[in-house]
Design a protein around this nucleic acid. Structure first.
Lengths: 137, 137
DNA sequence: TACTTTCTTTAGAATCATTATAAACTATAA
DNA sequence: TTATAGTTTATAATGATTCTAAAGAAAGTA
């Protein structure tokens, strides 16, 4: 189980104990080819329905927030009743399809360099995120 | 009361009956020099605390949503436990100051033209919103 | 290995924003 | 006026998220 050793190290390095629950969540989130978007509820369903395992919702919330804090997940800025997370932590943007309510990645190099001609005194920019809303033609 | 006549017309034109509650909310939202950002809770507090009036929370929600639907308010895309609205309905962007948790307008012409080099087949862009997160230097 | 400490998980309760419900009320048009 | 359709309201319901406090598990030390 090479994968698990990687995750154990990843967690240890971050000061997080490699518990069964966290390792399982790592597998679901990071053991995939493609990155993806999810809500806590999605993740909970994957674990309980597809993997037939039980991890308390509180633990899933705790873990997702811990991973976000460590930079393994990004929270996506958009208003919705739910909070979306992204396993793609590189700098990128999003389309939001209002027809399907789905998020689609928009890579940073598919957007021409954004220049903000306004500075706020005493403040520094920590991120610039674009949300492109689309709908059916 | 010229102002009220304007609001009565505005509402009538939109197919909304000019009720006492809606007119009061119009005054709070649109009878100001500057546009501003608010949550439903903010609005509710202004009405009850500053104006010493009682409008049911349900009515405030209904009204804010009706105004949004008519294009008199914009909902701001950012994740927060609360939903922010903007009385500035022109096309513009936002700074979000993580230190103070406040939103600041970023006008469209203070951002150099954004070009998205990715098209989604069968979809058309309905909006492009930038959220610039800032923090204390 | 046994022990201690600290971290983690958990079920369930609590919170908070928002929406639904259904009855009372009001603007409008005939 | 009167009828109708639209509104307001208090309150209940919902749903996402966080809190709590007790039980369980990992890590460090002897």
């Amino acid at each position: 189980m090479n994968i698990n050793i990687d995750f154990v190290n990843k967690l240890r390095t971050s000061g997080l104990r490699p518990t069964k629950q966290r390792l399982k969540i790592c597998e679901v989130l990071f053991n995939t080819e493609k990155t993806f978007h999810f809500t806590v509820n999605d993740l909970s369903k994957i674990i309980s329905e597809k993997l037939n395992q039980k991890i308390s919702l509180a633990t899933i919330y705790n873990t997702v927030h811990a991973f976000k804090k460590k930079g393994y997940l990004k929270e996506i800025s958009m208003n919705s009743d739910k909070t979306y997370f992204d396993t793609n932590t590189t700098h990128h943007h999003h389309f939001f399809d209002s027809s399907t309510m789905k998020l689609i990645d928009l890579s940073d190099d598919q957007v021409e360099k954004i220049k903000i001609n306004k500075a706020l005194p005493g403040k520094k920019i920590s991120s610039v995120e674009i949300l492109v809303k689309v709908e059916n033609e």
